[in-house]
C-alpha cells in the first residue's frame, strides 16, 4: 500500500507533502496504519464558513486500487485527524 498526504493552505499558506510505502515498514507499523485507515472511514467533507483552514488531500493506492479524499481542518472527524497526524509525524516529506 502507498499513501500520500498533502496539507495546503492555513493562514501561512505553506504546503507540506508526505509519502509512505508500507512495503518498507515494520509489520507493527503497517498494521497501525491500516487500523487508523479503517477507523477513519474517509469521506470528503468541507466546512464552508471557515477561513484559513488547512486543506488535506489523501491518496491511497492499495492492491491496484486508488482512492482519494479531500477534507479540512474543521470538517474532519477525530479518527481522520489521528490518521493525518500519524502520517505527518511518521511519513517522509517529499
Amino acid at each position: 500500500m502507498r499513501i500520500a498526504l498533502t496539507r495546503s493552505g492555513g493562514f501561512t499558506g505553506t504546503r507540506v507533502r508526505v509519502e509512505l510505502d508500507t512495503a518498507g515498514l515494520p509489520a507493527g507499523e503497517e498494521q497501525r496504519l491500516r487500523d487508523l485507515l479503517a477507523a477513519a472511514e474517509l469521506k470528503a467533507s468541507r466546512s464552508p464558513a471557515v477561513r484559513d483552514a488547512f486543506t488535506y488531500d489523501l491518496a491511497i493506492e492499495d492492491g491496484g486500487r486508488l482512492s482519494t479524499c479531500r477534507t479540512d481542518d474543521s470538517a474532519m472527524n477525530d479518527h481522520t485527524r489521528e490518521l493525518v497526524d500519524w502520517l505527518l509525524e511518521h511519513a517522509p516529506r517529499v
Binding site: F11, S47, A49, V50, D52, A53, F54, S74
Partner: peptide, 9 residues
C-alpha cells in the same frame, strides 16, 4: 497547532 482561523463566528 500552527494556524489561526475565523470559523464564521
Amino acid at each position: 497547532f500552527a494556524n489561526a482561523q475565523w470559523n464564521g463566528r
